[in-house]
């Protein structure tokens, strides 16, 4: 059976709220969630936020409903790009990117959408759901993205809150579905509060309103998300086959190292 994944839980400075949200996600039956850190380059020197290690949040992770395993928590970075210069930060060699498991991009213009689909090294391209789609989707970039294994993300939490947002979410996603035919789509919550989350089967049903078929809608909350996570892993490894680490450092040492030093410091040395 496929496991359910929610790739977008908004990071908040309130740790208790985040902890509660992750607990509810485990209760609803999500096996993996990703905590989303959003960066907008409005002022030029916006600093990258370091992801909070999971150990800070939980002593023991909550157990997933219907399974005996604890929930898996990933870190995800979303960069809102409105200028081509900002894409430089998204190179794979950038030290900031290496801290995150998944990298997503929210392009604001058609030209940036094209570069995001064709050249940028990202896992997810977000679709705006809070306003009318500023540009039309065209077939070449979308099919290019599908070929490269990049997924499009639709966020549903805005749709539950407000009726205008609901219209934008549904019409934007329908216009995407017309081009991508239900392939390479992930549905995720974008929840800040625990009660903005919905169960995975509810979302699969909601996918029908977004123009997905029944099978595609279920894949959008399970297998497609797994593909995104694996795509993110290929960035850290050589095509997902070879993984390098320092010579006299076994896996056990590495884990100990992770506990004693924060991840960011270790990477620089």
């Amino acid at each position: 059976m496929a496991v359910f994944v929610d790739l977008n839980i908004r990071q908040t400075s309130d740790k208790n709220l985040l902890r509660k949200t992750i607990e509810i996600a485990a209760h609803l039956g999500y096996s993996t969630i990703a905590v989303n850190y959003v960066i907008e380059f409005q002022d030029k020197k916006q600093n990258f936020i370091k992801p909070i290690p999971v150990n800070d949040l939980f002593n023991s992770l909550p157990i997933v409903q219907g399974k005996s395993k604890p929930i898996r928590v990933l870190n995800r970075l979303t960069v809102v790009v409105s200028d081509a210069v900002q894409c430089i930060e998204l190179r794979a060699t950038s030290p900031h990117i290496r801290l995150y498991d998944i990298v997503a991009v929210l392009p604001k213009t058609e030209k940036l959408f094209h570069t995001a689909c064709m050249t940028l090294d990202v896992d997810i391209i977000c679709i705006t759901v809070t306003e009318k789609q500023p540009f039309h989707f065209r077939r070449p970039p979308v099919s290019g993205a599908i070929e490269r294994g990049i997924f499009f993300e639709i966020i549903y939490s805005h749709a539950t809150k407000d009726s205008t947002m609901r219209r934008y979410t549904i019409s934007n996603s329908l216009s995407l579905m017309q081009i991508c035919k239900g392939k390479n789509v992930v549905l995720s919550s974008g929840a800040e509060k625990p009660l903005e989350l919905r169960g995975p089967y509810d979302i699969a049903n909601l996918g029908l309103l977004f123009g997905l078929s029944e099978g595609d809608a279920k894949a959008a909350v399970s297998t497609n998300c797994r593909a995104v996570i694996l795509h993110g892993e290929t960035r850290k490894t050589a095509m997902g086959v070879v993984y390098t680490m320092k010579k006299n450092q076994t896996l056990l040492d590495k884990e100990e190292d992770e506990v004693t030093h924060p991840l960011s410091k270790r990477m620089k040395t």
Binding site: L28, Y156, A159, T160, K161, R166, K193, L195, E196, L197, R198, G199, Y201, D202, I203, N205, L206, L208, L209
Partner: peptide, 24 residues
């Protein structure tokens, strides 16, 4: 399925009490 998709959109019941309904 019409009813089910509506349940996901419910975020308030009664007098501004925030809630969430999930189908199990």
């Amino acid at each position: 399925r019409l009813l089910w998709s509506t349940l996901a959109f419910i975020h308030q019941l009664g007098k501004k009490e925030t809630c969430a309904i999930t189908c199990i």
